[in-house]
């Protein structure tokens, strides 16, 4: 037995609350981030990811207080993303208690941010989030600004680039699947995972436990991320882990 695949519940946070929407719109309130984090930890979550989806920069400090409170009570790795634009944003999140910081739009606009953050704090804490959409069969392009803007970058090539710049992990979201509950985009996940040596977290589209299994077995993901199937009580994290283990995937049970 060796390294386990990971399940990572994702908490989208705004104004100190966890919310969930479809394709980044129609947000529903899902509860208090600290309570939810503790619940997922109790259920055996392998890590937690927090995405600060606050639009205005003057409310950025809210996420720092949330992370401080969670880090004092939950002893599993915490990744935080959303609104990370400069190395100092990475520093503030790490000091609040984040173990890894995820960057997305700013990394596309300024790839040097990846290199600078990685050189300063180590590749182990730098996650690059890639939002990709299928623009032609077998072709995926990178979108930024919450999926609204096509950069024209090829997702697989961008993944290799961020690896070479010093990213330690990639959070890969299939934008056209996000919130749809029809499963990960497996060809995309597999193409990216097979192209790089760093771990890939698959995200976007999970509607049932078979989707998690497929993400690992067919998508070659090292970790799977999901939100709504856990937030609204359809499945517990433990049920998901047991189901994946029953399908031959090594899990921490």
């Amino acid at each position: 037995m060796s390294l386990a695949k990971r399940i990572i519940p994702c908490l989208d946070v705004t104004a100190g609350r966890v919310v969930k929407g479809t394709n980044f719109i129609d947000l529903r309130d899902a509860g208090d981030p600290i309570e939810i984090a503790k619940r997922y930890d109790d259920q055996g979550a392998d890590e937690l990811t927090f995405l600060d989806i606050t639009a205005s920069s003057d409310e950025r400090d809210v996420i720092l207080h949330v992370i401080e409170a969670v880090a004092a009570q939950v002893f599993i790795p915490l990744t935080v993303g959303g609104g990370v634009r400069q190395v100092d944003d990475v520093r503030r999140l790490l000091h609040a208690g984040a173990d890894k910081v995820s960057m997305n739009t700013a990394a596309v606009l300024n790839p040097q941010l990846i290199a600078d953050s990685s050189a300063r704090y180590g590749a182990q804490c730098i996650v690059v989030a890639i939002d990709a959409k299928e623009t032609a069969p077998g072709k995926w392009e990178v979108f930024t600004h919450g999926g609204r803007k096509n950069t024209g970058l090829d997702a697989v090539e961008w993944a290799k680039k961020v690896e070479s710049l010093g990213a330690g992990e990639i959070l890969l979201t299939s934008m056209d699947r996000d919130g749809t509950k029809i499963g990960f985009n497996l060809p995309l996940t597999r193409a990216v995972s097979d192209a790089v040596d760093i771990p890939i977290i698959a995200s976007g589209g999970v509607g049932n436990l078979d989707h998690l299994v497929a993400g690992v077995l067919e998508g070659h993901a090292d970790a799977v991320l999901a939100a709504s199937i856990f937030h609204f009580g359809e499945y517990t994290v433990r049920q998901a882990k047991e189901y994946m283990a029953q399908h031959g995937i090594e899990m921490r049970l």
Partner: peptide
């Protein structure tokens, strides 16, 4: 960095191991 079943193993070694 290849598992017994032929799967590519990623570096960093990241996650929960025994």
């Amino acid at each position: 960095m290849v598992s017994a079943s032929g799967e590519k193993l990623k570096v960093p070694h990241m996650g929960w191991n025994e």
